[in-house]
Write a protein that binds this DNA or RNA. Structure first.
Length: 551
DNA sequence: AAAAAAT
């Protein structure tokens, strides 16, 4: 078994590690640290909770121990997706760097810029930042990137989810080519892999299992109640459980506020945390929660990932999260370090679809329980009904347009039988197989069919259309990129076979590309130039007519 | 549909 002293770290650093009470490196630390010390690039597939942070802070401290920073020219840069995570990394440098004299600066939004500028002027060895504030300060000329020799991109998958990748790409483009890059992500979806290829050179790839799937260490239950009963149900659950400390997740920031006030009114020891609160308040709340001064933290998904709070006894989901992955991240806040944790999810019948998605992801059903005094309902497997009048009216219209075969009596069948079989066997089986192959519970992100429905999939696909990835304008073989729609699949077009057959199979598609569009605007985006294959060469006259001027 | 991040 390796110990910290086998990894090549300096005596001062080993002392700091020992002072923190750690004796054994985690797998990712044992694997990564020697390579980081060698100066190699590292591609680490690991989640939070694996000891990932120390796997780069420790060797970086030793690397940075030699040399000195010049004003405004940081020697290393660590990018984090949220302010809280950035703060945590800064704390890690504080803890392990206490025997070194490294200057660090934490550049995050919501805090005074003057302070951060002052630190930059003094010269920083370690710069820890969220992308927005970093770019802001850079654009004001407060930072020169030319001395950055070590770059860390942490939680790349989350940066992708949050739309930070363009910022990250810009920042990386400002750095010297010759540098050491450490890149961490919980998943290696294709988009992430593409970034890694762009940023890293000959990286050492390290992949560690997630810290034990929360499914194994967290005792989960779900309660299905009416929306109006949720707060009551939650209070009863908290009272019937031995809640030492807990995070209660809501999907929306305003619901965080509402629930927080309600709990306070009922005499619970609670605080609220979400991204609309002042940063000072966020920091203060999180600190006192970590110190155990507050028992219940009502939070948005800011707190879902990566936050390192010891000894949470419970996680409550006041709402079913929109993305199944978030469920795993949320309940993963408890049951850490081998301790037992419990999670309770409050669902309304309309959230049934989301519950199914979660059960598919974790490969099993979440046991349903009753809360005494609250009527238990059944999960629905219908799509959430939207609004009142509007949705109702819209529906028949859609069905009238659909081919007869697909039409079905609006909502006559599907009472209980359907509701009680939430995940068809096939799907459940698939989930199990995937869990086995890909231990990370975030697998769904890598499944192409699934990504269509995820919000960031849109970003991904629009990226894919950029010239670099998908050189188009190969008129010779349009069918290779976009197969002709087969006639039998076409619905409802009045003259089903016509368009496909009227064109010779291999006719070159030379799209008509006027310099300006019908509104007189210059065309700029290439996406506009993609030929509309569905119409063949024929563009219906109404599309060519100038659009009526809008007021 | 929502949250995260720059003001």
């Amino acid at each position: 078994m390796t110990s910290f002293s086998d990894l090549g770290l300096s005596p001062e650093l080993l002392q700091a590690v020992a002072d923190s009470g750690y004796t054994q490196p985690t797998p990712i630390q044992a694997q990564a640290i020697p390579y980081v010390l060698m100066g190699r690039d590292v591609l680490g597939c690991a989640q939070t909770g694996t000891g990932k942070t120390a796997s780069f802070t420790l060797p970086m401290i030793d690397i940075l121990a030699q040399g000195r920073a010049r004003a405004r020219m940081p020697r290393s840069l660590i990018l984090e997706p949220t302010r809280e995570l950035a703060t945590q990394v800064a704390e890690s440098f504080d803890r392990y760097g206490k025997h070194h004299k490294l200057n660090q600066a934490l550049l995050i939004g919501g805090e005074s810029m003057a302070e951060q500028e002052k630190k930059l002027d003094r010269g920083v060895d370690v710069l820890i930042a969220t992308p927005g504030r970093l770019m802001d300060l850079f654009d004001r000329g407060k930072i020169l990137m030319t001395d950055v020799r070590t770059l860390v991109i942490d939680e790349a998958d989350r940066m992708l989810d949050m739309g930070f990748i363009p910022d990250v790409e810009r920042i990386v483009s400002l750095l010297p080519r010759i540098r050491q890059t450490l890149f961490f992500s919980a998943t290696m979806a294709t988009e992430i892999r593409r970034l890694a290829d762009a940023f890293l050179s000959n990286p050492k790839e390290i992949s560690v299992a997630p810290p034990a799937s929360p499914a194994a260490t967290v005792v989960q239950s779900i309660v299905v109640v009416d929306a109006a009963d949720k707060r009551d149900a939650l209070r009863r659950l908290i009272e019937s459980e031995e809640v030492r400390s807990a995070i209660i997740f809501c999907n929306r920031k305003r619901d965080v506020d509402i629930l927080f006030k309600s709990l306070q009114k009922h005499g619970f020891d609670a605080a609220a945390l979400h991204g609309d609160l002042a940063q000072s308040k966020r920091t203060e709340t999180l600190e006192s929660f970590k110190r155990g001064e507050i028992r219940l933290l009502v939070a948005s998904d800011v707190a879902a990932r990566g936050l390192d709070v010891d000894s949470l006894s419970h996680v409550f989901n006041f709402d079913v999260p929109h993305h199944a992955e978030d469920y795993v991240h949320r309940i993963g806040r408890t049951g850490r370090a081998g301790r037992e944790g419990r999670s309770f999810t409050l669902a309304t019948p309309e959230e049934g679809k989301n519950v199914q998605a979660i059960e598919r992801l974790i490969g099993g059903a979440i046991p349903k329980i009753d809360v005494e005094g609250i009527p238990t309902l059944e999960l629905s497997d219908e799509d959430r009904p939207r609004g009142r009048g509007r949705a109702r009216k819209a529906e028949p219209r859609r069905e009238a347009a659909a081919p007869a075969a697909e039409r079905r009596p609006a909502r006559t069948r599907r009472p209980k039988a359907a509701a009680e079989a939430p995940a068809p066997e096939v799907v459940a089986e698939a989930a199990v197989v995937e869990m086995a192959e890909q231990p990370a519970p975030v697998v769904a992100a890598e499944r192409p069919e699934r990504t269509e429905r995820r919000p960031d999939a849109r970003r991904e696909s629009s990226r894919r259309e950029r010239p670099a990835e998908a050189p188009r304008a190969e008129p010779a073989q349009p069918s290779a990129r976009r197969p002709e729609p087969r006639p039998e699949r076409r619905r409802d077009s009045g003259r089903p076979e016509a368009t496909a057959d009227m064109r010779p199979a291999r006719a070159p598609v030379v799209p008509f590309r006027p310099e300006r569009d019908n509104h007189g605007h210059r065309r700029e985006r290439e996406a506009d130039d993609v030929p509309v294959l569905a119409f063949g060469d024929h563009t219906p006259a109404f599309l060519l007519r100038a659009a009526p001027r809008r007021a």
